[in-house]
């Protein structure tokens, strides 16, 4: 495998890791606040559709992004309503949201575009274009550093950079701000937050809303940057891989980034090579597909360090003495 191939694989790793990372950070906010969210997939899917649909109709990818975020926020609000206001089962709510998105996107796509549940292909201003860094062209000839700069780092859409900047931002918010302190506290012991005079409901809705925004960006990235338009079920389990990455990262921002890059790499390798021949032993592509899930199970099993979720996670908060 030559250097350029390697660069290309890493390049596609970054592209593929981006939606995972955005969704993973989305889940991080929600779960750190004590709201389990297995509906990341649905929110991404919803946003993927609406961003592509609005971008296709208006020709503006930014309007598309806004529409995507709004639709994802709507589902996040529904999750909040079920799991915060009505203290329902967060897992069941997540399941419902995934199905709601899977059904509604196709239903509306069919109604609006009559193309069998897809949007028209996006082009021009309706897509996020790659951003070339200064001197990328000029430096591409320089050995080693050149390709890294011009191929690997430069030339991604703005959403990719947003996703990776969101990692230090999330770390900073979580550990250096009042909001972060309260957010972490409400996921560990909501009663402590409540008796300290801070609204548990407000905090949790805020966390769920941030989750909605990030899922919205993730979905929009899928439909308007990674690909050019929406197709049925286009998230293809990415929401669950993001969830897996979150567990893998033990709910910590920097670790989340590395986990998403790892899973992105697996996807990139599977995309490029199909079956991998390791000197006689052929690893089928399906094994690569399954690897993120297998790794997550191994982590969950606690064989490689125990993944302990936020203590109050999954439990609706009921005031008691």
């Amino acid at each position: 495998m030559d250097f350029l191939t390697l660069i290309q694989i890493f390049d596609s790793t970054i592209r593929l890791a981006t939606p995972l990372l955005l969704a993973c950070l989305a889940g991080l906010y929600s779960e750190r606040a004590g709201i389990f969210d297995i509906g990341l997939e649905g929110k991404m899917l919803m946003s993927a559709f609406f961003s592509a649909a609005v971008a296709a109709v208006t020709g503006s990818v930014w309007l598309g992004l806004l529409a995507g975020i709004a639709s994802s926020l709507l589902l996040a609000g529904l999750h909040g309503l079920a799991s915060i206001t009505f203290r329902g089962n967060q897992l069941i709510s997540g399941v419902a949201i995934n199905f709601l998105a899977a059904g509604m996107t196709v239903l509306i796509a069919q109604d609006w575009f009559q193309q069998g549940g897809r949007t028209p292909s996006l082009f021009g201003g309706a897509r996020f274009e790659p951003i070339d860094w200064p001197f990328a062209e000029a430096l591409s000839g320089v050995p080693v550093v050149g390709p890294i700069y011009s191929e690997l780092l430069s030339g991604h859409s703005v959403l990719v950079y947003i996703a990776f900047l969101a990692v230090p931002a999330t770390w900073w918010v979580l550990y250096r701000t009042r909001f972060g302190l309260r957010l972490r506290a409400v996921g560990e012991n909501p009663a402590a937050v409540d008796t300290a005079g801070v609204s548990v409901v407000g905090l949790r809705y805020a966390a769920v809303a941030i989750c909605g925004v990030l899922c919205g960006i993730a979905g929009a990235y899928l439909a308007t940057a990674l690909q050019a338009g929406f197709v049925k079920d286009m998230t293809a389990g990415r929401g669950f891989i993001a969830l897996a990455a979150l567990i893998f990262a033990k709910w910590r921002p920097w670790h989340a980034m590395w986990a998403c890059l790892l899973f992105g790499l697996l996807q990139a390798v599977a995309l490029r090579f199909q079956n991998i021949d390791l000197g006689g032993v052929v690893i089928p592509v399906q094994a690569m597909d399954a690897l993120p899930y297998i790794l997550t199970v191994v982590i969950l099993a606690g064989f490689v360090g125990k993944a302990i979720p936020p203590k109050a996670g999954g439990e609706p908060y009921v005031k008691e003495r």
């Binding site: 529904l78 079920a82 009505f86 089962n89 069941i92 709510s93 419902a96 709601l100």
Partner: peptide
């Protein structure tokens, strides 16, 4: 999805 939502998650509603 709606059935799961209403009979499951929004039961309390």
């Amino acid at each position: 999805a709606l059935v799961i939502l209403f009979t499951g998650a929004l039961d309390n509603m």
